[in-house]
């Protein structure tokens, strides 16, 4: 059965934010957003290597063992720089260490192959979903004026959507794998559409200041 086109679109949508960054014509991207771009780059590279390994009929799950913690670290570091509260900023950065240690412990205790997708990836996604949502709400409450012109708003919204899909759809699909393959297919298609929308939102955040008359305020 051929892969639905939306799955390819979802993979390609990960390149939108880096491409959008190039259209800023030399105007610097805010520092936290650069870490989000690094995360997008990691996703693209991981997918490309994963595809190449798969074409060579080799097992490619091992890529995720390193890419997932590294990606989480990049996102948490980016989100930490948007925190207005010193304690939260510290907590986000310390969470990187705790997350990595917890991942290693989980991999050692659980058999990696079936459990990584069912436990470790969703657990990372849950932490990142909480971090993204907290950033979105915490800053939105403290922002006077319109938040639609703030790059952090679009990026945090996109991240929240992406990780919400990872938390809910991934484990759901794995649980259904044995009973209804068609539902699994639908679940991954839904996840792909959500991913496309998420990266469009993140791209909006990357280009967002381009339409503002004057830049200002904290990033």
């Amino acid at each position: 059965m051929p892969f639905p086109a939306v799955l390819y679109a979802a993979a390609l949508s990960q390149t939108l934010p880096p491409i959008a960054a190039l259209t800023r014509w030399g105007r610097p991207v805010p520092v936290p957003a650069r870490w989000v771009l690094a995360w997008c780059g990691l996703l693209v590279v991981t997918d490309a290597i994963s595809l190449a390994v798969n074409v060579a009929h080799r097992q490619n799950l091992w890529l995720q063992y390193g890419a997932v913690p590294l990606g989480s670290a990049l996102v948490l570091w980016a989100l930490s720089q948007w925190q207005l509260n010193e304690v939260l900023r510290l907590a986000y950065r310390l969470a990187i260490v705790v997350l990595v240690v917890a991942t290693i412990a989980a991999l050692l205790v659980l058999r990696p192959e079936p459990m990584f997708e069912q436990v470790v990836e969703p657990f990372h996604a849950l932490v990142l979903l909480a971090a993204s949502l907290n950033t979105l709400l915490h800053r939105a409450v403290r922002t006077t004026g319109s938040i639609a012109g703030e790059h952090w708003f679009w990026i945090a919204l996109g991240l929240s959507l992406y990780f919400a899909a990872s938390v809910s759809i991934g484990p759901f699909a794995v649980a259904l794998l044995a009973s209804n393959v068609d539902w699994v297919r639908q679940a991954y298609i839904a996840r792909a559409w959500t991913g496309v929308l998420a990266f469009v939102l993140i791209t909006t955040g990357i280009v967002c200041p381009l339409f503002r008359r004057e830049s200002g305020g904290r990033s």
Binding site: V87, L88, L90, A91, Y92, L94, A95, V98, L99, A102, A106, V119, P122, F123, L126, V127, A130, P171
Partner: peptide
């Protein structure tokens, strides 16, 4: 999954 995530969040917040 939820327990692990909650543990990470609480540990990080506590340490911070």
């Amino acid at each position: 999954t939820a327990g692990l995530a909650l543990a990470v969040i609480l540990l990080a917040l506590g340490a911070a």
